[in-house]
Design a protein around this nucleic acid. Sequence first.
DNA 1: AATTGATTTAGAATGATTTTAAAGTAATGT
DNA 2: ACATTACTTTAAAATCATTCTAAATCAATT
Lengths: 136, 136
Amino acid sequence: MLNNAEISELLKKARLRPTRQRIFVASLLFGSEHIHVSAESLHHKIKQLGQKIALATVYNCLHHFHKAGLLKKVNAVNDVIMFDTNLSYHHHFLNVDTGELTDIDEATVSIAELPKLPDGFETESMELTIRVKPQS
Amino acid sequence: MLNNAEISELLKKARLRPTRQRIFVASLLFGSEHIHVSAESLHHKIKQLGQKIALATVYNCLHHFHKAGLLKKVNAVNDVIMFDTNLSYHHHFLNVDTGELTDIDEATVSIAELPKLPDGFETESMELTIRVKPQS
DNA sequence: AATTGATTTAGAATGATTTTAAAGTAATGT
DNA sequence: ACATTACTTTAAAATCATTCTAAATCAATT
Ligand SMILES: [Mn+2]
Ligand SMILES: [Mn+2]
Ligand SMILES: [Zn+2]
Ligand SMILES: [Zn+2]
């Protein structure tokens, strides 16, 4: 629920030119509930809303937003890269049928022990994915 | 370290015809340490060993072995499907630079609490991936 | 308004995987 | 053994997500 001026401001702070396309994409991503999108899913949503932005631009946009720290890249699912507006450290349910991701409330998971890393390595990120499917 | 007769037996038990190609592929996968392979990496290894099996056959083989419960499919990494000869429930280090997977000893991780699943869903699998990179 | 460098875009290219369809082979019955 | 049958292998084409190319457009700056 941010207005265009606010979105422009947000983009400028991230050192991204507030272009027509970026403003529209950002309006779909930020300022409301956290969501998970792929380039394709976002492109579909844009078309549904009667706008026309090239698919390549959506890819560019998502990657730029990610580099700028506005989006988190989530483990690919079914060969599709998902981006997450929830930047905090958290885990996911993954619907294996649809590929849909749902955040897991971090308070409900606790990892008690962790193994030591291989020598000379450091952790980049850590994610628990619980793959779920409709009860059979 | 299985001989061809043992591998044939293993394939028959899995209701897979013990063809020349499957026997060779199985000999590379089973009977020694647990490994993680992609179709490409396995195909490379086969060529290195002076054998010639079509890449499509390697794909078919891995998928058949997976359906037969001989291999576990691990989350895709960098757009590449990895298969795991370690069938037990376990977690991985993922080298984000190379895509290489390493098993985490299950005894060194413990997940203390888990969230409740969405209604009508059941867990298919659960995996912790610790992405690691060379220390900077 | 002109310049400059970034951005957008359609379309081509890429790379992993899957599909097709034809040729080859394992299993089964005779 | 031989024939039959069903399954498997293979090269090549197709698919699909993503990236690249190069020309057109645009935002920011002078
Ligand atoms: Mn793919
Ligand atoms: Mn790809
Ligand atoms: Zn999330
Ligand atoms: Zn493993």
